[in-house]
Design a binder for these strands. Structure first.
Length: 565
RNA sequence: CGGAGCGUAGCGCAGCCUGGUAGCGCGUUUGGUUCGGGACCAAAAGGUCGAGGGUUCAAAUCCCUCCGCUCCGACCA
């Protein structure tokens, strides 16, 4: 039984001005979180208890899925990172430190290298596989912009798990086991988390899913098909491409003056044609070499898709000078007559009467047939999928939603095990490379996502499984010995039944206690006061209920336990 | 890093434009009246005005430099 008068707890009537989203404001106001610096927070006692609840659920489900908990150091020798080349490729996102002997270390942003080196040493036979290990540990990332409290911090707590298998098929099973565990974890946390297809990013590997909590404040966009259940991160989302309508060759390409018209919208208006009759030509650098990409004039290029098509090449923006040197002046470039490689979105396949830049300042070409007038290396899905596009599976329109990424599962294949030469001997005594998967949950982010998804105008509404305490016992007349004695008796009875009780024993007016109880958001509020006893006992109310119910001292504990189920 | 804004008591803010005693609300402490949805009265504590430099008789206020924080874009659990 924790008593407020003894707790390190202060609620705030107003939110600090640097908190932007509701969950951040509420965690600060409810005294659960305090800021230390940008992207750095202290968990106060109440917040700490909620965090431990999330961790415990994760532990239980990881263990249930057959994973084993370990703890690796957060300080990782640079040598390990050099083995995979990520010492360089992680770039500025990784904190690097140097010891007194000038040896370099990474502050763990993740642990593929450490765990792969570990399993390489521990596993030598197929008989020892599969193995999945996990840890719950502080991670460090030098985020360009920490944001929204715990949502994106420089330091955060992550559950990271790693699976090692003999074959791709076996690895798929391990992946599925983790996927299923994630579904259970987020469900037990009271979160509606949606698995969506995702890009693998710098971690690499063949496929991955993110677990997204839908929220307007989320940083990711998700394409969602209500008809068939397809869901994907916008970075990854595909679409059924509808060919642009201009399929008939009508005339030879013809140069027209378009003075000062540089954007697709402007050129379309100037020439009095639809924006999607304009072909948007972009030049980007792939591993430093210029490449042209064509998309319909009303579309955006998805650089990640281009990157995949180009075999993982580093895509970067080309300067206006570089574009001018490669093809022509920015604002008037096009694929006709260029010598650099040209890729086009699938929807442009067969486009035969479109407008492109003429690679001369202030001039465009009418009636361009891509097949006749340009040399397109490949037609691929290259655009950012947006609201209303056709679902790649069923063709129905897709909706765009915002999401908070709370978990991410990856099939890594042999990217890391190959780099470390992490092999085992198969039945025939031949060395084989282990197949790997990795699985992350942002624990601190998950905690905040729970608050983001579960609150009302008065404060937090903790799901019972995560709440720092289950019961908030308000003693309205702390000077009344009889009231205090009966409240204490109920508290002890509840604790004996395994219910965590928080007691507001402050000498404050009732209104203040009610407001604070709503703000802190424990699942059940019990009021003990002279008035409640006149009415027959304790007032019991769930955080989500409109009204309280009177329970006699004899029946209160059982009734409360029942409410918590 | 690019763009925008902010930095004055624990929290929320005013004062700055037009230089001259550092203020308000909440919170905190003490006393009193109150007491079922953020009471009232009285008294009090609490401030390197983000830092450094400059202008000036005089700087929270004007100028310069730096630092920190927040928001919008590229990174990600």
């Amino acid at each position: 039984m924790m008593r407020w008068t003894q707790a390190l707890l202060a609620t705030l009537r107003e939110a600090p001005q640097d908190a932007e989203i509701i969950s951040h404001k509420l965690l600060i106001r409810a005294g659960m979180l305090r800021k230390v610096g940008g992207g750095l927070y202290t968990f106060m006692p109440l917040g700490m208890r909620a965090l431990r609840k999330v961790e415990q659920i994760i532990r239980e489900e990881m263990d249930r899925a057959g994973a084993q908990e370990i703890l690796m150091p957060a300080l990782q020798p640079a040598e390990l990172w050099r083995t995979t080349g990520r010492w360089e490729s992680m770039g500025a996102g990784m904190f690097k430190v140097t010891d007194r002997k000038e040896a370099k270390y990474a502050l763990a942003p993740t642990a593929e290298e450490v765990v792969t080196a570990l399993l390489k040493g521990e596993v030598s036979s197929y008989r020892q596989l599969p193995k999945t290990v996990y840890q719950i540990q502080t991670k460090f990332r030098d985020e360009i912009r920490p944001r929204f409290g715990l949502m994106r911090g420089k330091e955060f707590i992550m559950k990271d798990a790693y699976s090692f298998d003999t074959t791709m098929d076996a690895a798929d099973k391990s992946y599925q086991a983790m996927f299923d565990a994630y579904v259970r974890i987020f469900k037990r946390c009271g979160l509606a988390a949606k698995p969506v297809e995702a890009d693998t990013g710098d971690i690499g590997g063949s496929s991955s899913h993110e677990f997204m909590v839908l929220a307007p404040s989320g940083e990711d966009s998700i394409l969602d098909c209500a008809a068939c259940g397809y869901a994907a991160n916008q970075e990854r989302a595909e679409r059924q491409s509808m060919p642009v309508p201009y399929q008939q060759e009508v005339a030879a390409a013809e140069v027209v003056d378009t003075p000062g018209q540089e954007t697709c919208v402007a050129v379309a208006a100037f020439l009095n044609v639809a924006v999607n009759q304009i072909v948007k030509s972009l030049v980007v650098l792939a591993n430093g070499q210029p490449v042209m990409v064509l998309v319909p004039g009303d579309r955006e290029l998805n650089e990640l898709k281009l990157k995949r098509i180009l075999g993982g090449a580093k895509i970067s923006e080309a300067s206006a000078e570089a574009v001018a040197a490669a093809v022509g002046p920015v604002g008037s470039i096009g694929p006709v007559g260029v010598t650099i490689p040209v890729y086009a979105d699938r929807s442009l396949e067969g486009a035969a009467d479109v407008v492109t830049g003429a690679n001369q300042a202030g001039k465009h070409l009418l009636h361009v047939s891509l097949a006749r007038d340009a040399h397109v290396l490949a037609y691929e899905d290259l655009v950012v999928v947006s609201e209303g596009d056709h679902c790649p599976r069923c063709g129905k329109p897709l909706a765009v939603r915002r999401g908070i990424e709370v978990g991410h599962v990856f099939k890594l294949g042999m990217k890391y095990t190959q780099a470390f030469n992490a092999t085992y001997l198969d039945e025939a005594g031949a060395a084989q490379t282990m197949v790997m998967g990795c699985y992350g949950i942002g624990v601190t982010r998950t905690l905040q996502a729970i608050v983001e998804q579960s609150n009302d105008a008065n404060g937090i509404v903790w799901p019972a499984a995560i709440a720092p305490y289950q019961v908030n016992l308000l003693i309205l007349d702390p000077d009344n010995r009889d009231v205090v004695a009966r409240a204490e008796a109920l508290g002890s009875e509840l604790e004996a039944l395994g219910v965590d009780v928080f007691v507001d024993d402050r000498a404050e007016r009732p209104g203040i206690k009610f407001k604070d109880a709503d703000l802190i958001g424990l699942p059940v509020r019990v009021v003990a006061g002279a008035k409640s006893f006149e009415k027959g006992g304790f007032e019991v109310r769930r955080r989500t209920d409109a009204d309280a119910v009177i329970r006699s001292p004899e029946t209160a504990a059982a009734a409360i336990v029942n409410l918590l189920k």
